[in-house]
């Protein structure tokens, strides 16, 4: 607790934390079957921390769902396991590979894994009968997200209708659903990238090591540094070299680029983020680059 009680003020980070904890508790109280979508990224780790705090000393009263693209960074999976074991929470892994085998999604060899995640995720939500799925989306990430509600309604096809969202006032959230529908919940809507880092620093919590500066064999594609991996064969003219890099987001290894960086501690990363002139998604996410409305389109289909 870093608040100065003398004048009854809460720092902005404490206010954000209090708001997020309130949202976690509302969902646990009002929904029959919530689930926390865990990507292994820093945002979903902050979500785990907030959920831990919201119900302490009880355990988190819902399971954690991860969509395994098959192209995940091993460091991310290791961190996921550490968190899940420490909190004693149930982990459900929905595998894109398995979904392809089962015919739930079709791998045409061209569609990125991120896109196949959508079908895999919706199928896992449906199979589990989950009525509320927590996601780590933030409104500062992207302009379609800037208009998303904290309680974001999804129809029976898992689709988001941006033009027909429920008004959301004060801290009164409406969790009404019909059969087959579900709600996406975004407890960290009002956090910025800087807030996330500050919180990770303050709470001293474990995040995947690839967020910190390290040596990596990389090659350049579309102006991004991508990891050398058997999943991503080199194209003509691409050369692998070793660079000192770190990742600003984690996702599908074949699409998520890294940036050259020597930032190896949270404060160094904060300095870097504060000075950055390109959004984290714009810099390192191939999947958001396809069109100006790429995120809006994926969200409508049921993306996180």
């Amino acid at each position: 607790m870093t608040a100065t009680h003398a004048d009854y003020r809460l720092s902005q980070l404490d206010q954000l934390e209090a708001e997020s904890i309130h949202i976690f508790r509302e969902v646990a109280a009002e929904f029959e079957k919530p689930v926390l979508m865990f990507s292994g990224g820093k945002d979903s780790i902050v979500m785990m921390r907030l959920a831990e705090k919201a119900f302490y000393p009880a355990k988190i009263p819902f399971p954690v769902l991860q969509v395994d693209t098959g192209f995940d960074f091993p460091e991310v999976l290791a961190t996921r396991d550490n968190w899940v074991n420490r909190l004693g929470v149930k982990l459900i892994v929905a595998s894109v590979e398995q979904a392809i085998k089962d015919g739930v999604v079709v791998d045409d060899g061209k569609t990125p894994r991120n896109r196949l995640q959508i079908g895999t995720l919706l199928n896992a939500l449906e199979e589990g009968g989950f009525t509320a799925a927590f996601g780590g989306g933030r409104r500062d990430e992207e302009k379609a997200r800037a208009k998303e509600r904290v309680f974001s309604h999804r129809d029976e096809f898992g689709q988001w209708d941006p033009k027909n969202q429920r008004p959301e006032l004060w801290s009164l959230y409406n969790g009404r659903l019909h059969e087959g529908e579900h709600m996406r919940i975004f407890p960290i809507s009002n956090w910025t990238e800087l807030d996330i880092w500050d919180y990770i620093g303050r709470e001293a919590i474990e995040i995947p090591s690839i967020y910190y500066s390290h040596q990596r064999r990389v090659f350049q594609r579309d102006g991004m540094w991508l990891s050398e991996t058997p999943h991503n064969p080199l194209r003509e003219g691409e050369v692998v070299e070793e660079r000192t890099v770190r990742f600003r987001t984690v996702g599908d290894m074949t699409l998520t680029g890294c940036v050259e960086s020597t930032a190896s501690t949270v404060p160094e990363i904060i300095d870097e983020v504060a000075a950055a002139r390109v959004t984290e998604r714009g810099a390192t996410r191939g999947d958001d680059r396809f069109s100006e409305a790429a995120m809006e389109d994926r969200k409508k289909e049921g993306y996180f």
Binding site: T2, Q12, T192, E206, Y211, T265
Partner: peptide, 15 residues
Amino acid sequence: TGEPTTGPDITTGMD
């Protein structure tokens, strides 16, 4: 995994 932070809190103290 990283170093414990003792550096500047850019947003912590802000309101």
